[in-house]
Simulated scan of single mutants.
Amino acid sequence: MGRETLWLVVGFAGQLAFTGRFALQWLYSEYKKRSIIPVGFWYLSIVGSALLLAYAIYRQDPVFILGQSFGFVVYLRNLQLIARNKDKEQGE
Rank of each mutant, 00 (worst) to 15 (best):
E30Y: 00
Y31M: 05
K32V: 11
K33A: 11
R34P: 04
S35N: 10
S35W: 10
I37S: 00
I37P: 04
I37W: 04
I37K: 02
V39F: 14
V39Y: 13
V39P: 11
V39H: 00
F41W: 04
F41A: 01
W42K: 01
W42F: 13
W42V: 03
Y43V: 14
Y43G: 05
S45Q: 05
S45C: 06
S45H: 05
S45D: 05
I46S: 00
I46A: 11
I46R: 00
V47R: 06
V47F: 09
V47K: 06
G48D: 01
G48R: 02
S49Y: 07
L51I: 07
L52E: 01
Y55G: 11
A56V: 04
A56E: 15
A56H: 00
I57L: 09
I57E: 01
Y58L: 03
Y58V: 00
R59E: 13
R59S: 14
R59I: 04
R59N: 12
Q60F: 07
P62Q: 07
P62I: 08
P62A: 03
P62E: 00
P62C: 01
F64V: 09
F64C: 09
L66Q: 08
L66W: 07
L66P: 09
G67Y: 02
G67H: 06
Q68R: 12
Q68A: 08
S69A: 10
F70E: 00
G71V: 11
V73M: 14
V74Q: 01
L76H: 01
R77T: 14
N78F: 02
N78K: 07
N78P: 02
Q80E: 07
L81M: 08
L81Y: 12
L81G: 08
A83Q: 13
A83V: 09
N85I: 03
K86G: 02
K86H: 14
